[in-house]
């Protein structure tokens, strides 16, 4: 299983990220998001951030997760390379995500950006489970 792959898109960036579990899929999606901007080997996980989110379904939760990372990228002026995600669903069906993200402050001398991701679109956004979990995302750049 590959972690993620990019697909052709004229104006923006489209990718699919995979995982044996939904947690792994969400980690790989976050990695794909950052990999589209900066070479991941240039990012050291020097600091960590915690994220807690909830949503009515897994797809909305995934959208919130990726949007939250874009928010942190911009407001913390940081890039991330290490992601750990825990998911659970309560009796009422509500999905909860707890995550820890490792990264560092942007240093333009070391972090050469190929793009700047500005938002996560809902266009053709979706999650499927066949043999593995798969999420498809189009990034607004």
């Amino acid at each position: 299983m590959i972690a993620f792959e990019y697909l052709e898109h004229t104006a923006d960036i489209k990718f699919r990220a995979y995982g044996k579990t939904p947690e792994e899929m969400l980690c790989n999606a976050a990695a794909a998001l950052f990999n589209s901007m900066v070479q991941p080997e240039t990012i050291a996980a020097k600091e960590s951030w915690r994220v807690e989110l909830e949503a009515d379904d897994l797809e909305d939760l995934a959208y919130k997760w990726l949007s939250e990372i874009v928010f942190l990228f911009e407001t913390e002026s940081s890039v991330f390379s290490a992601f750990s995600v825990k998911l659970d669903q309560d009796a009422a069906g509500l999905w909860r995500l707890q995550a820890e993200i490792g990264g560092e402050r942007i240093d333009l001398k070391r972090h050469a950006f190929a793009n700047e991701v500005k938002a996560i679109t809902r266009h053709k956004f979706g999650i499927k489970k066949n043999e593995v979990w798969c999420i498809q995302v189009i990034l607004d750049v």
Binding site: Y6, E8, H9, T10, A11, A114, V141
Partner: peptide
């Protein structure tokens, strides 16, 4: 209007 994808451009 764009005519070439970003990955092709790169």
């Amino acid at each position: 209007g764009r005519v070439m994808s970003r990955s092709q451009a790169l």
